Simulated assay, not measured.
Amino acid sequence: MSIKEVPDVEIDDSGIFKYVLIKATDKDNQSKNIVRGNASAEYHANVFEKTEKELKKKGISTECLGGGRIERNGNVISVYGHSIGYGKADHEVTVSILKKAFPSSKLTWSNEGY
């Protein structure tokens, strides 16, 4: 599988949930950062390990670059906080990825909160 086929963003439609920023690399050593998050995950590791397992089957290696939380309410998306296990993701990078996926949404980020 080519890195181009990996979706940039897979997050829940609404709510407050944990997310991770992941560097995904294909067999041709092409890479990109992707965002994954969902409310069913108790820990950031649950989000990362699920993605890692799915992409490994397709020949894509992964590295967790950190985590935080996303609050999504309609067209308003806020990125903040950190992961105890992985540290704080670069929320500015996360928001730039989310802007491509949700161009009509209002996106903000903060280093505050958990």
Rank of each mutant, 00 (worst) to 15 (best):
A24V: 13
H44Q: 06
G59L: 03
D8H: 09
V35F: 05
F17A: 03
E112I: 04
N73I: 07
S14L: 11
T62Q: 07
I16A: 10
E54H: 09
S14D: 06
H91F: 11
A89M: 04
G85A: 14
A41M: 07
R36T: 00
D8E: 05
L65V: 01
S14Q: 15
K4Q: 12
E10I: 11
V76H: 12
K4D: 14
Y86V: 01
K50W: 09
K57C: 08
T108W: 04
V6L: 01
E42L: 14
T25F: 08
R72L: 01
F102E: 00
V35L: 00
Y114K: 14
T25Y: 08
D90M: 00
G67Q: 13
G87Q: 04
D13C: 08
Y80W: 07
S83T: 13
G37A: 05
V6Q: 03
I60C: 06
V6S: 02
Q30C: 04
N38W: 15
N33R: 15
G59Q: 13
K99C: 00
D90P: 06
S40C: 10
P7C: 09
F48R: 15
D90H: 08
K23R: 15
I77T: 02
K18L: 08
E49Y: 12
P7H: 10
G59D: 12
K57P: 03
Y114Q: 10
A41P: 06
L55N: 03
K57E: 15
D12C: 01
E112Y: 12
N46I: 05
A39T: 13
D12Y: 11
I84D: 12
G87I: 03
V6R: 04
S31E: 13
S2Q: 10
N75S: 08
G87L: 01
D13S: 14
T108H: 03
E10L: 10
K27E: 13
N33S: 12
V93S: 03
W109I: 05
I34A: 11
E49G: 07
K56Q: 15
V76Q: 15
I22R: 12
N75Y: 02
K32E: 03
R69S: 11
Y19M: 15
K100F: 00
C64H: 13
K100N: 01
S83P: 05
E112N: 15
G74E: 01
K4M: 10
Y19L: 14
F48H: 07
D13E: 15
N73V: 07
A45N: 10
I11W: 02
T94G: 05
V76K: 15
P103E: 01
Y80I: 03
E10M: 09
K88S: 12
T94R: 06
K23D: 12
I11K: 02
K53W: 11
E92C: 07
K57I: 08
D13V: 06
L98F: 05
I11S: 00
N33A: 11
D12I: 04
Y80G: 01
S14V: 08
S104F: 00
L98K: 00
S83V: 05
T25P: 08
V95E: 02
G74V: 05
A101D: 00
A101R: 00
D26A: 07
A45K: 15
V9Y: 00
K32T: 05
E5K: 13
E52N: 14
K106I: 07
G85I: 09
